[in-house]
Computed example of a mutant assay.
Amino acid sequence: MKMRSILLSVLAIAVLAGCAKNNELPGDPDVNAREAVVTLRLKGNGSTRAAGVPDDLDTKNSTVNDLTVFFFDGDALVNKVYQATVTGSAVMDVKTTTSAKQAVVVANIGSDQTTTGIFASVTSRTTFMAATANLLKDGNPVQNDEKVYMSGEGTITYDATGKDGQVTIPLNFVAARIDLKVIDFSGAIGKGSVYGTHFSVASIYLMRAQRWTNFLPTGTGESLKYIAKNNRKFAGGVTWESTTTTVPTDYRVHEEYRVATIPGALTANKMENLGHWYVFDNNELDEPTVLVVKVNWKKDGTTDTPLFFNVTFNGNDQMRIRSGNTYTVNLKLNGNFKPGDGGGTGGGGEDDPDTPTVDAAVDITVTPATWTPNVINKEWN
């Protein structure tokens, strides 16, 4: 799936005006370069991650709260500037010099990280490409509905005088988003299964939510990645439940990656708008991100038997997790959850959350949007 660039023209259009000579900008590789002023037109404010899947989520995700701007001349860093924004439209000036040839923008870091923090060690483009961020900083989530990391870069074009230049920077989401829109139990209930008596949803969570990223990708097309395979780090909503695979090194458990409240009853045989999660790129076949629906089935009529209905983003069951994409998940459980002696089969669930489940029909469609959307319909019979 090709990641779609998001051109936020009102957010990241820079116009450089040649000014007086200034030799004091940090990292300036050309002491004879003239000072240049970059004008940024920005907007935005912050929020938290809402429960469920709000209707205005795409709009909120496009918010820009702050920018960190890096100016490069080849691999050399000219300077780096953090610019906080204000609510509503704003115009702000940041300084560089006319030796700057490329500009890189990172949005929504949340605070000035140029002297301490994520970008403190950035002294060149090479070291910028090595800078990383963690979805769980000090154990707390750093992404929310109006604070989603974005990044982009552009080449500065100067006019014939060499004094005035312009660069337009398209911003791309660094994260991906998984939306669990609906679990439909109509098929199971139509077979005589009774929700709350024969079966019930025990938990819904992510396992191997990829939480580590760089800020610009490498590769192109299907090979485009924001993190090297061996540098991935994972989190999940519950303590590792798989008995067939081992827990990844440095695995973090956080409530952010599970549905906090499971509905006690169904509405029209469904649960809807259950949750959404921000994750980083996991464009690999091994150690895939998995969305798990754990169901307790009273196989003997009394005792709960856990079964797992898994959406595995490994490129086989479902597409891999790639930055800039949303994955809207619609599930149907059509199997028989009556007790075993009454003909029940457990609805097609698996005994382990890390075993991909095979569904009868998968329908995936892609339509243009701010994010690149992927609709996943998964059905168990």
Rank of each mutant, 00 (worst) to 15 (best):
K2W: 09
M3N: 03
I13K: 15
V15M: 15
P26D: 08
V31I: 14
N32Q: 02
L42E: 03
K43S: 15
G44F: 11
R49K: 15
D56K: 09
L57H: 10
T59V: 11
S62N: 12
S89W: 06
V105Q: 02
I109G: 09
S111K: 06
Q113S: 14
T114H: 13
F119G: 00
S121A: 15
G152F: 00
E153P: 02
E153Y: 13
T155M: 12
A160W: 08
T161N: 09
G162C: 06
K163A: 15
A176W: 04
D179H: 12
K181W: 11
K181P: 01
S186I: 06
G187T: 10
G190K: 15
F199Q: 00
V201I: 11
M207G: 07
A209M: 06
G221V: 04
E222K: 15
F234K: 02
T246Q: 05
T249C: 01
H254R: 11
G264W: 08
E272K: 14
L274K: 09
V279T: 09
W297Y: 12
D304S: 09
F308Y: 15
T312H: 06
F313M: 07
R320T: 01
N325G: 05
T328Q: 09
V329H: 03
D341R: 11
G344A: 07
A360S: 07
T372Q: 05
K378H: 05
K378E: 02
